[in-house]
């Protein structure tokens, strides 16, 4: 069953969302999401690397010897990560400072190598780009959700704009590391809950 090009793009949003469904790329999802803007920044950086590495990997898929494909993919990914690092340092220094060591660590983000190996090395350039874009958008969406929840609860703000009055006492733990674990744990729980519900409905409709 071949997907349409639109499906190729949108599958990363929900059906195969890298974090929610595939549970990949967790380190940045937790580490940098103390605010919405950091989450989006990380998401965009990862999306750029994902699209570029998918493109190159799918372009060179015919000539890469099978035995050393993984090292070559890693070199390709690391190259784009370093480009992102340098561009960010020059043009978005505040974001660069906020993301810290998690920028170079995009290299070992399992989503990127995962998509290179599982998708781009087997599909056409066009499809690989769409796949990378879709996965990147899905990743960014989850990061934005986690970032917003943590910023609203932990700091009482969204994008630096205060939401509650001065009497609001922020739930500090939410922007500290434990809060990240709670938010993602509960989010994954909600995803699983909705899956289970849908399955149940399907079963019931078969029975009736």
């Amino acid at each position: 069953m071949k997907r349409s090009l639109v499906q190729e793009f949108t599958k990363g949003f929900i059906d195969e969302n890298p974090i929610a469904r595939l549970v990949l790329g967790l380190c940045p999802a937790l580490a940098v999401t103390t605010s919405l803007i950091n989450g989006i920044g990380m998401g965009i950086a990862a999306t750029f690397v994902l699209v570029c590495s998918n493109t190159i990997v799918s372009m060179i898929k015919g000539v890469v010897p099978k035995k050393i494909r993984i090292p070559i993919f890693i070199v390709v990914i690391a190259t784009f990560v370093t480009i992102v690092e340098m561009v960010m340092a020059g043009f978005a220094p505040v974001l660069y400072k906020a993301l810290g060591i998690y920028v170079p660590l995009i290299v070992v983000n399992c989503i990127i190598l995962g998509r290179a190996e599982a998708f781009a090395s087997k599909n056409s350039v066009g499809r690989s780009i769409l796949d990378g874009l879709g996965m990147g958008v899905g990743f960014t969406m989850i990061l934005a959700v986690i970032g917003s929840i943590r910023e609203i609860l932990g700091d009482g703000k969204i994008l630096g704009f205060p939401l509650f009055g001065p009497d609001f006492e922020p739930v500090l733990i939410m922007i500290l590391p434990p809060g990240a674990f709670f938010v993602i744990g509960i989010l994954l729980g909600i995803f699983k809950w909705s899956d289970l519900r849908q399955e149940k409905k399907k079963l019931q409709s078969i029975v009736h």
Binding site: I72, V75, T79, M86, V87
Partner: peptide, 23 residues
């Protein structure tokens, strides 16, 4: 295999060198 990998690395290093000079 080693040569192929070496060539890929050299291309990558030069590409990065270029971006480094620009940024």
């Amino acid at each position: 295999l080693a040569v192929t990998l070496g060539i890929v690395c050299i291309i990558a290093a030069f590409a990065l060198g270029g971006v480094y000079e620009i940024t």
